[in-house]
Design a protein around this nucleic acid. Structure first.
Length: 638
DNA sequence: CCTCATGTTGCCCTG
DNA sequence: GCAGGGCAACATGAG
């Protein structure tokens, strides 16, 4: 019997230390080992990825490739440019692969893809070995031990985790690696269609992602940003296993910090250095193993003489949250990432709702602009021009550096959804997906639902103020001055509410507060006025969420699925029902709702529909919606 | 059925 | 300057 010829497929595990899957590959005592990466067009064109996360990924690949070559100079990370679904059958044959080994990935797309790959391997007579290593617990195991339910709280994770057993100690990095076999590629490359390209906004140069199977020089090199046609990155945070392990080391050397860490007590305004570990992007790309992190921290906690912090606020507690979101996503799949069809997500009639593909029941890349004002709010929020310095500073830090503190994410997410703009959390999640270097689909989705009070959390009356909240951490406004430099010279009295500063002072401090855009000249810079009265918007949002809670729909409710949900909502409430929404073809006379100035211009817009296909509506039984519908009909007759 | 405590991270006022 | 209570708009699970 000949020795195995193993293909090790790197994906979410760009490291050599503590890799259960890599160990499984080496335990086969292979004749040859091909460490490969395939440049999957799904991620290249259908995931939102900005330059900073591309850079981080490339950093991780370069570092990994170097580390492999350091152990065995005839090996490295071999990067291929083709979809795994079409590449593998050809590669299995060409390189006479007997075993394919990879780390388990329970993300919705990844699971579908991997099932297909396993099937293709089976057809080719290739054995597949899969190991868990991305989370503390296998998300599927976690769900099983949680009575088949998605994990919706940390205590559920802790209880289910206890049933699974102790978290394994990390494995050492391998000391040797087998040579790869011959590297011929005598088959044709299948190039993907790139339309639509979700990342076209970042592609400034010619896209050569798929110019050749083994890269432009045929040497299986790690791509560069310019090969991908992606514009330059701007982040100071860089990837790679070496960096990650050095960062972890410096954290655990500070025993007080490590053992007494309490996330809610870390300052979101700290920027040099930041108050948290910055290890999240490394966990995302697998350049740091979560078990390595867990045990290095736990060992410090176990030996700590003083009073150590505990989950969920402690450092290890952060990893439990991560597992919680992975568990929720593992069982809900694509539905976890949207309200529509999601039994665990509350239905709230936000502005700018996603368009739904009726065939699949999944959200598309498009959304309804039911309110021109809401669309303006979204644009101003995304690019840091809301006129609220705390929000704008965070959003600019996010765009430039790809990272903001967890509480900063709370602040901007609350502001966009239930505590200000009343915009669909799916819009916010998309911006984070694009800009975060630590974007982890499960965690991002879960946190947005949390902050929107759509799932995991429900105390919607606890609303982050863009003034009082940052003042608690940073009275002087150092953080704002760093990321909103036009306000650099403002007195701390006005740093979070510059519109309140007297004009004479505004001139003295070199920045005028006016209009809705940035600008100015050498003499006076311009920073926009706040885009709304926060206190008023807070009131509107809270009453709207309160009402949505009272109505009590979840994403899988038939009324949500068929689009008849609007009958249950007062047409004067905030959201797509606010004064002019009605059944298709019916125009409702406008009645002014108190306190919201956007109604008149909204009424000129085309009527939004949450679902493309409203056919099923007429067949639905009417029950709770009857009274509001009657009121609507009465008003129409008047 | 009830009460009560708890839930990663609110704000405001009081003393 | 900061700790603690009130607020009383939520959901869940233990007892």
């Amino acid at each position: 019997m000949s020795k195995p010829r193993v293909c090790y497929w790197f994906r979410t595990d760009l490291r050599l230390h503590d890799s259960p899957a890599l160990k499984a590959a080496l335990d086969l005592t292979p004749e040859c080992l091909y460490p490969i990466w395939t440049w999957d067009p799904h991620y290249v064109y259908k995931a939102r990825v900005g330059p900073n996360r591309w850079q981080f990924l490339i950093d991780c690949q370069n570092d990994l490739s170097t580390s492999i070559a350091n152990i065995n100079p005839s090996s490295k990370l071999f990067v291929l440019r083709e979809a795994p679904q079409t590449l593998f059958p050809k590669l299995f044959k060409e390189w006479r692969i007997s075993h394919l080994v990879f780390e388990k990935d329970t993300d919705a797309y990844a699971r579908e893809r991997d099932e297909r790959i396993i099937q293709l391997a089976h057809e080719a007579g290739v054995k597949v070995v899969v190991r868990t290593g991305r989370t503390l617990y296998d998300p599927d195991e976690l769900v099983k031990k949680n009575h088949g339910e998605p994990t919706m709280s940390v205590s559920q994770v802790q209880n289910a985790g206890k049933l699974i057993g102790p978290i394994p100690r990390p494995l050492p990095a391998p000391k040797s690696l087998p040579d790869p076999g011959e590297l011929s590629l005598s088959f044709n490359q299948e190039r993907p269609t790139q339309d639509p390209d979700y990342n076209s906004a970042h592609r400034k140069g010619l896209d050569k992602s798929y110019s050749a199977l083994a890269g432009p020089n045929g040497d299986f090199s790690v791509p560069t940003l310019s090969e991908l046609g992606i514009e330059q990155s701007t982040t100071p945070h860089r990837g790679g296993e070496k960096n990650a392990l050095e960062m972890l080391l410096s954290i655990v050397m500070d025993k007080d910090y490590t053992a007494t860490f309490e996330k809610p007590k870390t300052a979101p305004t700290a920027f040099s250095p930041q108050a948290t570990t910055l290890l999240s992007p490394h966990l995302h790309f697998g350049s740091l193993s979560c078990r390595e992190f867990y045990w290095r921290v736990q060992d410090v906690v176990n030996e700590y003489k003083g009073r150590a912090s505990n989950p969920p606020t402690s450092l290890t507690g952060q990893l439990l949250f991560r597992d919680m979101y992975f568990g929720a996503q593992a069982i809900l799949g694509y539905k976890f990432g949207q309200t529509y069809g999601n039994p665990h997500c509350r239905f709230i009639p936000w502005h700018l709702p996603s368009k739904i593909d009726i065939e699949s029941g999944l959200i598309t890349n498009e959304y309804f602009i039911d309110s021109a004002t809401a669309q303006t709010y979204l644009e101003r929020w995304k690019y840091g021009r809301t006129g609220f310095p705390w929000i704008d500073a965070l959003m600019r830090q996010l765009r430039q550096e790809g990272w903001i503190h967890h509480l900063g994410r709370h602040a901007v997410a609350c502001f966009l959804t239930r505590g200000g703009c009343y915009i669909d959390w799916e819009r916010g999640a998309e911006v984070f997906e694009e800009w975060l270097i630590d974007h982890e689909a499960a965690c991002n989705i879960g946190n947005w639902q949390w902050l929107a009070c759509a799932a995991f959390y429900s105390q919607f009356y606890r609303c982050y103020s863009p003034v009082a909240f940052p003042q608690k951490w940073d009275k002087e406004g150092r953080f704002v001055r760093r990321y909103v430099p036009e306000l650099e010279h403002y007195d701390q009295k006005y740093i979070y509410e510059p519109w309140k500063a007297p004009i004479a002072d505004q001139k003295k401090w070199g920045c005028l507060i006016k209009g809705d855009a940035l600008g100015g000249d050498e003499k006076f810079k311009i920073y926009p006025k706040p885009m709304f009265d926060f206190a008023k918007r807070r009131e509107i949002c809270i009453s709207a969420i309160k009402n949505a809670y009272k109505v009590g729909l979840y994403g899988n409710d038939p009324k949500v699925l068929d689009g008849s949900w609007w009958k249950l909502f007062d047409d004067r409430a905030e959201g797509p029902t606010d004064g002019k929404r009605g059944p298709p073809g019916v125009t409702i006379e406008h009645e002014n709702a108190a306190g919201d100035e956007c109604h008149l211009e909204d009424s000129r817009l085309p009527k939004p529909a949450r679902v493309e296909n409203m056919n099923t509506m007429s067949g639905q039984k009417r029950s709770a919606g009857q009274s509001t519908l009657d009121a609507l009909v009465k008003r129409l007759k008047r």
